[in-house]
């Protein structure tokens, strides 16, 4: 379970809030889709949940563990697939997995079994003894996914995970996400690919300008049951833009 309560974050170089008073709860056994335009605050929210960024205010709980009070215990519960591919290029794939496994306290035998299982699933077995620097974008993504799963996380957080994956691997990933949810784990999934979100997620949240503008099951968001998620997303985010417009205009005016 993930619980965010009144979380806000402003980067030190920015005058605007990247995340603005965001409250959200994602339940166990649920796949939660997190949508939003570029720069809406998706990755910032995910970085706050994973403990990479510290919020200016508000609290984050992972399966009831307060991230600020016990960050090590909270982080141990999380598996994180980042949106960038800045990995340790000077390491071999297996060395990276060994490193991550050790950091999460996974026993060597279990780690080997997990690596074998997931590497075979994502057809990465042959490449694992090679340098990460020699990997393609998609291979790095697969390695990230494996690294996020070797410790059997209770909460799985994926930031744009389908980028660069081939159709087979994308299918395997979606299947894995469903399996995780069925096992009672929480899956938090951010994406721009609305079709995938529509097919995979149980519930979605839409963030714009750092604020959570909609959160519900797909059926409830589509009030009449006929509107596509894509048009709904565009309506909600553009409505939000229009609401923001007078402020923006006055800001510009003051600037002049």
């Amino acid at each position: 379970m993930i619980r965010l309560h009144n979380v806000s974050k402003t980067y030190f170089k920015s005058p605007v809030k990247a995340v603005d008073d965001l409250s959200l709860e994602v339940k166990p056994g649920e796949i939660f889709g997190f949508l939003g335009p570029n720069g809406a605050g998706k990755s910032t929210t995910i970085k706050i949940i994973t403990g990479i960024l510290t919020p200016d205010s508000g609290t984050v709980e992972i399966n009831g563990v307060n991230l600020a009070d016990d960050p090590i215990a909270a982080k141990s519960l999380v598996g994180y697939v980042p949106d960038n591919h800045e990995m340790y290029d000077a390491l071999k794939g297996i060395e990276y997995l060994q490193f991550v496994g050790t950091m999460y306290g996974v026993r060597a035998a279990d780690l080997k079994r997990k690596i074998d299982e997931y590497a075979a699933l994502f057809e990465l077995t042959d490449a694992i003894p090679d340098m990460i620097g020699s990997y393609s974008h998609g291979m790095k993504q697969k390695l990230s996914v494996i690294a996020a799963l070797v410790h059997d996380p209770k909460v799985w957080i994926l930031d744009e995970p389908l980028t660069g994956l081939d159709p087979q691997s994308a299918y395997q990933l979606k299947t894995l996400m469903r399996k995780q949810a069925e096992a009672g784990n929480t899956v938090f999934f951010s994406s721009h690919v609305i079709d995938v979100v529509e097919k995979v997620c149980d519930r979605i949240g839409i963030i714009n300008h750092g604020k959570l503008v909609a959160v519900d099951t797909l059926d409830n968001i589509r009030a009449d049951g006929k509107v596509s998620l894509e048009s709904l997303f565009l309506t909600i985010t553009s409505k939000n833009e229009r609401q923001d417009a007078p402020d923006d205009a006055s800001d510009d005016g003051e600037g002049k």
Binding site: G51, P71, I72, A73, K75, S76, N84, E86, V100, M103
Partner: peptide, 10 residues
């Protein structure tokens, strides 16, 4: 750029 890894580890 991979400094985030350090921050995400338990």
């Amino acid at each position: 750029k991979s400094a985030f890894i350090l921050k995400s580890l338990p």
